[in-house]
Design a protein around this nucleic acid. Sequence first.
DNA 1: GATTGGCACTCGTTCGTTCGGAGTGCCAGT
DNA 2: ACTGGCACTCCGAACGAACGAGTGCCAATC
Lengths: 340, 340
Amino acid sequence: MQEDRRLAVLRAIVEDYVATEEPVGSKALVERHGLNVSPATIRNDMAALEEEGYLAQPHTSAGRVPTDKGYRLFVDRLTTVKPMSAPERRAIAQFLDGAVDLDDVVHRSVRVLAQLTRQVAVVQYPTLSRSTVRHIELVALTPCRLLVVLILSTGRVEQRLVELDADLDEDELAALRSRVNLAATGQQIALAATALQDLVEGEQPAPPATVAVVETLVEAMSDHRSDERVAVGGTANLARYGDSFDTAVRPLLEALEEQVVLLRLLGEATSGGAVTVRIGTEGPFEQLSSTSVVATGYGPDDALASLGIVGPTRMDYPSTMAAVRAVARYVSRILDEGNQ
Amino acid sequence: MQEDRRLAVLRAIVEDYVATEEPVGSKALVERHGLNVSPATIRNDMAALEEEGYLAQPHTSAGRVPTDKGYRLFVDRLTTVKPMSAPERRAIAQFLDGAVDLDDVVHRSVRVLAQLTRQVAVVQYPTLSRSTVRHIELVALTPCRLLVVLILSTGRVEQRLVELDADLDEDELAALRSRVNLAATGQQIALAATALQDLVEGEQPAPPATVAVVETLVEAMSDHRSDERVAVGGTANLARYGDSFDTAVRPLLEALEEQVVLLRLLGEATSGGAVTVRIGTEGPFEQLSSTSVVATGYGPDDALASLGIVGPTRMDYPSTMAAVRAVARYVSRILDEGNQ
DNA sequence: GATTGGCACTCGTTCGTTCGGAGTGCCAGT
DNA sequence: ACTGGCACTCCGAACGAACGAGTGCCAATC
């Protein structure tokens, strides 16, 4: 019995604290929520919760504040997922539908996420590793300079310039083009790369042009630089931190500058529609001990890439999680459609 | 004579204020700079400068602070451009040389600018309008779905998908490809667009495939969405504002979210290697009344696009201007090289 | 006429003090 | 197990005094 009430108290404290940004005391708690007990009772519960590490007191004789552990319990057990409202869903869908290409999808996702959650939004570009090769195009700019264009199923296009030692006439070019396409088109990118390697090795001695082109393609395919790209938006929402500039905003701004750091923050894409919540010190960075990350995967199997938001540990987890999930879902759908 | 000293006083005040971030008084001024006069004399000069609107007093009996007008005079007449040091130049060149494609050039420029100036850096992507068509490629993904790839002299690649009503065989495709390339390659983008239009109109009735492809190309060429892209970096440097969060940082963060706003901020690219400085209220936005913009054009004729930095009016203009100019120069060179 | 030293005055900043209130912990009573 | 009462803590706002940097002005000087 009291156990149930204690959880209710924890939930109430989290909700109040998120709403008011101020430590919450026993009296305010009974008034605001329909707890039919006296403040003194609540005080006992709060003392117990503090004992167990779910709450903390900024100072003696101040109200209580949830700890990371408290938020964790809240997120794990006390959250009732509130689905997005119909108009919200429609707004998301409409806005994302307006996208004209992959870049645009990513940018729009960032915007819509930032707007919905009023936090800093982060969207990772679809990773190369999961996508398949849609087409390879070879364009002779001059007789001995070749533009190699790699078109992926996600809509991403990589291009590279290749300098050839010897000229290549139209027929040779066409032959080479059809050979690499035959080997790679439709394949997952890793498989395509090995298939292309085989192409060269199966034929000794391979013509230098073939070698050069294949080399470039393989390099483009395994170029993890592109894997590391992320889009960031909603930094203006940091203004709401206001207080705690040095402890919260500055390190976050620094983190946002570094793509690599951001990717580690987003973490591994979680599959199965689950939304990952990393609270405060659970994350990989010391300096970000008062920020949380709410993220999830998107794309087929939710494994294509990750998106999410970064915000203060003191955030409205239920609606943030709902927003992140909803956006991920719509993005997945749109990418899927564009793929037909 | 006194006129000369007054300007020296203004310069000294600007320099001291930029360095210390505090209103500067007459006594400190004589001590720090080798002015061989007494504080009282300086006070008279300062009173005169204030009268003329170059200085302001935050409060009675506080030191003086430069006004926008004061900074303007400083920038226009009191600045001796200090060139970048040799190691700095080398660092810029080296870092930018590592770029692999257009995107990378832009991103690296932003980084290097942000690092050099310790301000927020903004780099506009090369505008379509000034670039020329390097090549057009048509790829048949299926018999009736065509991928149109537009390759520009700056290295930018635009691609569009075209659905055809009727199938197109290889020969027809090749013919179409060579015709559009003949018409457009090497042309400035606006001219290329009209040339392509003429192609369709010169031949009545034009085959539907031709019409569709040309339509798409023209659309891609006149797509100003791509003109609007900018890269932003160094937001972490905002942390140095520290004070004046609401008045300075918040509106700036908001501005940085909006590409359109940013482009207006950067303003027209100035030609001839000149660096534009927009100080405080000289800019187009009320809320950014305490931020300055230092920008310049880059690319051939410095007219391809703009880059620059945004920071507090209280900034080190000489070295910032030097850095902006140096980076613009190197970026121009690199783009030019990649174009051969 | 420009420069200077002197002097009274202004005003923001800092620091200690006070005071109220919100909140707690504990205890005795139900 | 819950509740009312009570003493205690401590934060934060409010107040005021002391301080000091800086000014403006004036009479004296070069």
